[in-house]
Design a protein around this nucleic acid. Structure first.
Length: 598
RNA sequence: GCGCCCGUAGCUCAACCGGAUAGAGCAUCGGAUUUCUAAUCCGACGGUUGUGGGUUCGAUUCCCGCCGGGCGCACCA
């Protein structure tokens, strides 16, 4: 289903063809006084041709053929062209929207294949608040891309290899508390890591022992490998528990270690192609001088001079590192999945790493058409504006955070709706608590740092998940009542709000301003979703859903549904049904569930 | 020092590749409920968009300088 702006834009393109070539952009009017949609095409064209914008606008209006869908367009301000849709067309359009399973989201011109690399926890470390944004953001993007009609591979790249295992192995062999391991495996492994890490900073002998354990692991020592596998297994169990709670799945879960067999080849290929060379014992990639200095990821300015900032692909001790693994991973993904796009959802501190990685890859495989995107995000901060930690300076564990969210939500449900039995209150608390956490994380612009606040996150007023869920609940309540009361012929959608159109297109008298506002807001779902994927910004979807919910609540207050006369009642029920479906689908795309009552 | 990001209402944040009178929520104040869930709605208050220039019909948005903050800067990932 084509969106309204796309429809108007195509009409504009035809009308403007004689005047020059310019991209026709149509957007929803920001004020109903101006109509429903607007374009600044005449002003853009006028600037291009040093012509009078209002005159050009008039010429465009004279030529454009839109009489079937809107009133004669009007010129306003410096040269805006405003469109006001005809009520009859609006009604037809609304009927089509209601009948559309995808709620007006247009099919992509060319479906693409996305590999989305997100979450990426580390073995032997509990998942903490630092993992939440990658996990939730990546999941939302995956859901959105799939819903639009792209194909998606969800790829969890586990940190299962690296120098931390030297510490863990030594700790495991010398300090392991079996009971603690049984009770809380990740807590115990974390304790061991911290213990040895602290000790090795002061004691050279410990440091040597740590290094020996690492070397033994890397050279294939059976005992160490077995312990390492045990740590992996215990960790994966914990990850799976968290992902199950969050409703998140992966198509591919592979550790960094999986790519070890290819590391030598990658390095050899880079050397052979002259991309990497030896420097201070390490193998490095230097600038090839094709980029301006400021944009070159292999240069850095020191004291007014541009000096090399190479990327290491092999350390002086012969071991590979992060960059090498990422190159091997990238190559593997291309061979295995042949994606059009790869998304790396990580925090913003890794921007330089990915710029280097992408640049090396382009030199290594110049013909490859894949788009590489570093979808980065800002930090989560505490009240003090510093990285979010507990009072004692510990990182906040994800499992505990989710527990607390559910518990707080449960207490609120109990307070608001004590009549429900405890099982149901628990379930509602779970849905609301998890929804609140996810929504609070997705709402800010992803590149901003944001301040974590329990109160804000679980606030039930304002732009929050519970507010959106409540809109849905109110609608469901209407339909429950509609079933009880003697329904007039042929309406009353029963349980799942995915019903077919309740009435025919000719019977949708959208007249009340609140009805029209709601219908127009519903049209916008299909306009917003592609934008979300364009810049990987789910916050646009959050804002849309909030506006939709807010528009619905206004409608709900202004327009009685069940008490309205027959044709109005039917059209209002249809509005409610479409709103419920859009809210439920929109929240589902953010990984958020809706309760039937709350 | 250099690079990236940021600076918008008392607080937390928006603003769709430059668009019309910069929007929300929280907080504060005032109103609405015998009516489909008041976890709601309606209204008021609140701004020199850090600062100084520039480009433009038009700038929170683009360019330059300055002030302030965060992050990063070769053998960790």
């Amino acid at each position: 289903m084509e969106t309204i702006p796309a429809l108007l834009a195509s009409r504009l393109r035809t009308a403007v063809a004689d005047f020059g070539s310019v991209e026709a952009r149509v957007q929803a009017a920001n004020d109903t006084r101006f109509g429903d949609y607007q374009t600044n095409i005449a002003m853009v064209l006028a600037k291009q041709q040093r012509a009078n914008p209002r005159q050009l606008a008039q010429q465009i209006i004279d030529k454009i053929e839109v009489a079937d869908l809107c009133e004669p367009p009007e010129i306003a301000g410096a040269g805006f062209i405003n469109f006001r849709l005809k009520p009859a067309w609006l009604a037809d359009r609304f009927a089509a929207l209601v009948a559309d399973e995808k709620l007006g989201v247009p099919a992509p011109a060319t479906p693409r294949k996305y590999v989305i690399d997100f979450s990426s926890p580390n073995v032997a470390k509990p998942m903490h608040v630092g993992h939440i944004r990658s996990t939730i953001l990546g999941d939302a993007l995956a859901r959105i891309a799939a819903f639009i009609g792209h194909s998606v591979v969800r790829d969890n790249h586990i940190g299962d290899w690296g120098t931390q295992f030297g510490m863990l192995l030594l700790g495991w062999k010398t300090e392991l508390n079996r009971d603690a391991l049984t009770a809380d495996p990740l807590g115990e492994m974390e304790r061991l890591y911290k213990l040895i890490s602290g000790r090795s900073k002061e004691d050279p002998a410990t440091l040597t022992a740590v290094h020996q354990e690492l070397v033994r692991l890397q050279s294939g020592d059976e005992e160490n490998l077995a312990l390492w596998r045990e740590m992996q297994r215990l960790s994966q169990t914990q990850f799976d528990t968290i992902y199950a709670r969050l409703g998140i799945t992966f198509d591919v879960t592979l550790g960094e270690s999986f790519y070890n067999p290819w590391l030598k080849e990658v390095v050899a290929a880079l050397v052979e192609k002259g991309i990497a060379r030896e420097s201070e014992g390490a193998l490095c990639v230097f600038s090839d001088g094709t980029l301006p200095e400021k944009e070159d990821p292999f240069l850095i300015s020191r004291d007014g001079e541009w000096v090399p900032m190479p990327a290491l692909v092999q350390k002086a001790d012969g071991a590979a590192n992060y960059t090498t693994t990422d190159l091997a991973t990238l190559d593997y993904r291309l061979r295995e999945f042949a994606p059009d796009e790869i998304l790396y959802v990580t925090d913003g501190r890794q921007q330089h790493h990915f710029r280097q990685l992408f640049a090396i890859f382009r030199r290594w495989q110049p013909g490859c058409a894949v788009h590489l995107n570093h979808v980065w995000f800002g930090a989560i901060l505490g009240d003090d504006g510093k990285p979010f930690k507990t009072r004692s300076g510990e990182t906040i564990k994800l499992a505990g955070l989710l527990d607390e969210a559910e518990e707080r939500a449960f207490r609120i449900v109990t307070e608001k709706n004590p009549a429900l039995d405890e099982t149901e209150r628990r379930e509602i608390g779970r849905i609301i608590g998890l929804g609140a956490v996810k929504y609070a994380d997705l709402l800010p612009n992803r590149q901003s740092d944001y301040i974590f606040s329990w109160d804000k996150m679980l606030a039930l007023q304002g732009n929050t998940a519970p507010y959106l869920q409540y809109s849905y609940v109110r609608i469901r309540s209407i339909f429950r009542k509609a079933e009880q009361s003697p329904a007039t012929a042929g309406e009353a959608a029963s349980s799942p709000p995915s019903s077919p159109p309740l009435v025919g297109s000719s019977q949708l008298p959208l007249q009340h301003p609140a009805e029209l506002a709601l219908a127009k807001k519903l049209f916008a779902f299909g306009e917003v979703l592609p934008q979300v994927l364009e810049d990987f910004r789910p916050n646009l979807l959050c804002n849309y859903l909030y506006e939709l919910a807010s528009t619905f609540h206004s409608f709900f207050e202004a327009c009685p549904v069940l008490k309205a006369d027959a044709p109005t009642r039917a059209s209002r029920l249809t509005l409610c049904d479409a709103t419920a479906r859009t809210l439920r689908q929109g929240l589902a795309l953010l990984g958020i569930e809706v309760p039937e009552r709350m």
